[in-house]
Amino acid sequence: MSPVAHGVIALLPEACTSCMICVRECPTWCITVESHAEQVGEPGARRPRTVSILDRFAIDFGLCMYCGICIDVCPFDALEWAPAIDNSAANRNDLVHDTERLAGWRMHD
């Protein structure tokens, strides 16, 4: 394990079901998930299924304490540690990483 293995948290947006579990377990309340529900009809199904579509996922690294609880609790392995250490910012708002930036931290799929 590299000494900076826990540098930043990466997101795989395709795996995230917007279930909100990480948002609710995060001790610092620094995760934001925005989503909407869509009806998906499937051949052979009597009624359409409601699925949540992820609109925005953001982690505020100005509040995050890198405890890793969100990574542990995600039932879909949508979050993981990434070794980046260049996630500092010149102003407070840039410490909020949204979907694309979090997805960009991934080392592999």
């Binding site: 909100m20 948002v23 377990e25 309340w29 998930v33 989503s35 909407h36 529900a37 409601t50 949540s52």
Partner: peptide, 27 residues
């Protein structure tokens, strides 16, 4: 201090548009 900050976990995507079944509270 947490009273002043909206809990991000309160949103419930499953019941979006249907009215929340129950209020979610922070653990």
């Amino acid at each position: 201090a947490r009273v002043a900050v909206p809990w991000p976990g309160a949103a419930d995507p499953e019941s979006a548009g249907k009215g929340a079944r129950r209020r979610q509270l922070p653990p």
